[in-house]
């Protein structure tokens, strides 16, 4: 089970909340301070993309962000309910630079070493993970 799970209506105004929650949970899990900015950005990109897919496909539904603390990694999954992904990830190769989907994926893949763009039961899923630095004292 995820350490913290967040579900929000696929609307742009909630993406900021998801970024802040993800960064807070990651910090607590022991993800290094130096990558928290990148993590926040990557989660924002994944959520923005999910929201855009919902809007483009004209479907309601929620975006699910699962934050899971593992022994050595901090795992983030962002799943949409926008229906079958239309060749998820295909836009990452080239395309119009104004295409925000392509730019968003470019940012994610540029920032995150361990990233996987796949399909879930109701739509696309982006899985990302970061190393956790062992901390001796957790307050």
């Amino acid at each position: 089970m995820a350490t913290v799970e967040l579900r929000f209506s696929a609307l742009p105004e909630h993406v900021r909340t998801a970024r802040l929650v993800a960064a807070a949970v990651a910090r607590r899990a022991g993800v290094d301070e130096s990558v928290l900015d990148e993590l926040r950005l990557a989660v924002g990109e994944a959520c923005s993309r999910a929201v855009a897919l919902h809007q483009r496909n004209g479907v309601d539904g929620a975006v699910r962000v699962a934050l899971t603390e593992q022994e050595k990694r901090f795992l983030i999954e962002v799943a949409d309910e926008a229906g079958p992904a239309h060749a998820a990830g295909a836009a990452a190769n080239g395309g119009d630079p104004e295409d925000e989907d392509a730019l968003g994926l470019a940012v994610i893949t540029g920032l995150v070493e361990d990233v996987e763009v796949g399909n879930g039961s109701d739509g696309g899923v982006i899985r990302m993970s970061w190393p956790v630095t062992p901390i001796s004292v957790a307050v």
């Binding site: 950005l41 924002g44 923005s48 925000e100 730019l103 968003g104 940012v107």
Partner: peptide
Amino acid sequence: DFLDSTGLGVLVGGLK
């Protein structure tokens, strides 16, 4: 304080 790809897209649109 924060810029994402949506912002980049807007700047590219402005440039065009």
